[in-house]
């Protein structure tokens, strides 16, 4: 049994690109109130924002769940989108399947998953084509 965690749930709206990031910004505020270090908060909120953006671009939104433990934070992002065909390819910097209209907004540079890996201490991607994707990230609090 894992020790008890504080749990926060967010619905990520898949239809509103401009509002993507609301969950990450809220999480940033919550973690700041709880006294986590600025570096830890920065890593978590950026990684989570990348995940949110991915769900909006590729999966019409999804769910974001944040579990806060005394010494670590776990972020679980799940969607029922098209899934990722080749996860190792998607993990490469610069690889992207985002459409042009997303690129014109400054996203779709193929840095989403690489940034999630860069900023998290543990990253697990479980994806089934046609079913969806679950991304689990763990952050050790500094």
């Amino acid at each position: 049994m894992e020790e008890e965690a504080l749990h926060f749930h967010f619905d990520v709206d898949g239809n509103n690109f401009a509002s993507a990031g609301e969950a990450s910004v809220q999480v940033k505020r919550l973690l700041r109130q709880m006294g986590f270090s600025p570096d830890t908060i920065r890593r978590i909120s950026i990684a989570m924002y990348e995940g949110e953006i991915n769900m909006v671009i590729h999966a019409h939104g999804g769910d974001a769940d944040v579990y806060v433990y005394p010494d670590k934070i776990r972020v679980v992002l799940s969607d029922t989108g098209p899934g990722i065909k080749d996860v190792s390819l998607a993990m490469q910097e610069g690889y992207s399947t985002a459409p042009d209209n997303i690129r014109s907004l400054g996203f779709g540079a193929g840095m989403g998953l690489p940034n999630m890996k860069r900023y998290s201490d543990k990253l697990e991607v479980r994806s089934t084509v046609g079913v969806g994707t679950v991304i689990e990230m763990e952050f050790i609090s500094a």
């Binding site: 401009a18 990031g21 990450s24 910004v25 600025p38 920065r42 950026i46 924002y49 907004l105």
Partner: peptide, 15 residues
Amino acid sequence: IMSNMNVVAVAHLTD
């Protein structure tokens, strides 16, 4: 030169 809404979120998150 980007000036859309997402710039605010990125500025906020990167501090």
